[in-house]
Amino acid sequence: MKSEARIAYLFAMPWILGFLTFLLYPVLASFFYSFTDFSVLRPPRFIGIENYKEMVQDEVFWMTIRNTFTYVVAAVPLSATVAILLAMLLNTKVKGLAFYRTLFYVPSLVPMVALGILWLWIFNGEHGLLNMSLEKLGMSKPPNWLGDPAWSKVTLVMIAMWGSGNAMVIYLAGLQDIPQSLYEAADLDGARLVAKTRHVTLPMLSPVILFNVIMGMIGSLQVFAVPYVMFPNGAPARSTYFFTTYLFDNAFRFQRMGYASAMGWVLFLITLTLTFVALRMSERQVHYDRS
């Protein structure tokens, strides 16, 4: 027993070291920084809770919180639905599975530098691929996806769905793990597709859904690269200014690392709370029947 523990610590050592160095230290340090004023070149100077006090009064901060929550609430369920639907379609054992699977996964692989400009071309209000298609379909005044504050967030939510390939792969694996016998039993009961989906597929998939939704939520709360590249300054009218983009602007553009650290900590607490709530709420819905 004693020697097992000794060996175990040895095995766990890389992570213990990694955890202390690359996680615990930075987390604690940034907690300290959140009470200071500093920039890349200036050493931190302790200023108490000034940063937090400022945050409470910072309208733009609250605006980014609202924008971020709106985005999370729209993007997470939507991409989850798309990903599950795609996974279910692929799970029907169609021919060319590998091919389709790659195609669905591919958008998650296109480098950001290229992707940003491709989206700008696709969503351009006047000559974009999307609006040209919509006009052909008979829509007389398609929305100005990029320039209208009412639509800019919708654009980003749509873009998020292109990234559902990653989650789809995991759902697909989860689906393949559901024992066929359950479907056969349902067939015997004469269950139709909808009923089978409701009573067999979704419950059996629920742990995977929970996992993906939580990971998706954590990721969406930190949404950064696409809006940063596509909508500089959160344009139009800060409708696409998100928590992390504002945080980055504070850290690098405005040279306010202390304030940025405080924002980071707030985001950490929000993430922890939401994850906890999600786990709590899902306790009854998620089935872990195989230990």
Partner: peptide, 19 residues
């Protein structure tokens, strides 16, 4: 360990750079 997955990247970025 699981909880660390929830630490936002920006929180780690600045001190890690310092390190």
């Amino acid at each position: 360990t699981l909880a660390t997955m929830m630490v936002p990247f920006p929180v780690l970025m600045v001190p890690t750079f310092g390190l």
